[in-house]
């Protein structure tokens, strides 16, 4: 693709100079920290009871203070939190070109529009995956510091697969966020879309159609509603892949064919 490495360099520079990575990292770092707090509460029920509602909530969400529970909460939080946080990142990477009115500077260049869009997708994928890995690593540190029982190497593997697997499924669905940031020429429409899909995913999961609804699959994969093998199947992964590819293709098509009036 003509000029892809230049476009990737440009996109990376924009990210490096922005404050968005710092804020998203800080925001996502709350996930393992809160997970660790739950573990502290669950480890000492007497102290937990004196904390009132927080204890009740922690009991509802978690159960016991051990590594399987810790990893389970981590994966669920990555799935749900990631859906929103990753969408904000994607909305910014694409939408900022319109809010800063810089989109027009990308349209008539020797570097093709496709190279620029591909670079944006690659930067988003690297950024969100790095965030997920960071959160998982921070989770391991927090879990070790609060010294919860039940650690094993196979558990680490499944815990990693749950968290990073659901993150990857979420990342795949960001192409629609990119598309809507382009069509909506800014950050508002994709953020609205994300809230809409989070609500719809809840309804789809409750009504038992979650495995057929792409935006419900990452949370179901994480084990938020029960064992993964009972909730998602091959068709679910296929649907997420198709949705992802449709979103990517539509975004490329839009940047090539839509009238650019801003």
């Amino acid at each position: 693709m003509n000029g892809f490495s230049s476009a990737l360099w440009a996109e990376a520079l924009k990210v490096r100079r922005s404050k968005v990575p710092i804020f998203t990292t800080l925001g996502f770092a709350l996930v393992p920290l809160i997970d660790g707090l739950f573990m502290i509460i669950l480890k000492d029920p007497e102290a937990a009871r004196s904390m009132g509602l927080i204890t009740t909530k922690a009991q509802l969400v978690a159960g016991v203070a051990d590594w399987p529970t810790f990893f389970s909460i981590l994966a669920q939080a990555v799935a749900v939190g990631g859906a929103i946080l990753f969408a904000i990142i994607t909305a910014w990477v694409f939408g900022r070109e319109f809010t800063d009115r810089t989109a027009k500077e990308l349209l008539a260049l020797p570097t093709s529009r496709e190279a620029i869009i591909a670079a944006k997708f690659v930067v988003i994928a690297i950024w969100t995956l790095a965030l997920s890995l960071f959160v998982f690593a921070l989770g391991l540190l927090v879990g070790t510091l609060v010294s919860i029982p039940g650690w094993s190497a196979p558990l680490l593997r499944t815990g990693f697969a749950d968290a990073i697997g659901s993150a990857l499924l979420t990342i795949g669905l960001l192409s629609f966020v990119a598309l809507l940031a382009s069509i909506g020429r800014g950050e508002l429409l994709p953020i609205g879309w994300t809230v809409f899909t989070v609500v719809l995913a809840q309804i789809a999961a409750i009504t038992g159609w979650g495995d057929w609804f792409p935006w419900a699959v990452p949370a179901l994969y994480s084990g938020a509603a029960g064992p993964r093998s009972e909730l998602v199947g091959l068709h679910s992964y296929l649907i997420v892949s198709i949705a992802s590819l449709v979103g990517i293709a539509a975004t490329f098509y839009w940047w090539r064919h839509a009238d650019q009036t801003r």
Binding site: G3, S6, A7, W9, A10, L13, K14, R17, E105, L106, L109, P110, T111, I116
Partner: peptide, 12 residues
């Protein structure tokens, strides 16, 4: 400078 560097690279 950075804004122009982006333009320079995208112009090859």
């Amino acid at each position: 400078h950075e804004n122009l560097e982006i333009a320079r690279r995208l112009h090859g």
